[in-house]
Amino acid sequence: MSEARTPGPDQPLIYQVRIKGHLDDDWNDWFGGVSITPEADGTTLLTCHVADQAALHGLLRQIRDLGMPLISVNQIEP
């Protein structure tokens, strides 16, 4: 893997968080700017740029507090 492709520990990261159930676009603000994609299998994909790991955990905490079942969290290439 070339160095350019390895994000440093504090680089902004892109994550895709999949949760169970459909969410409307209007949840965008609540999560502080994520893009929301409802999928045909009844899940929703939240795609978010987070500053660092702490910000990711903040987002997961918000999901936890709404009782939304979490299915997966993946880091994706920018």
Binding site: G21, L23, T44
Partner: peptide, 8 residues
């Protein structure tokens, strides 16, 4: 019949 997040 809805796929919506239950609480929402």
């Amino acid at each position: 019949g809805s796929h919506h997040f239950v609480l929402d």
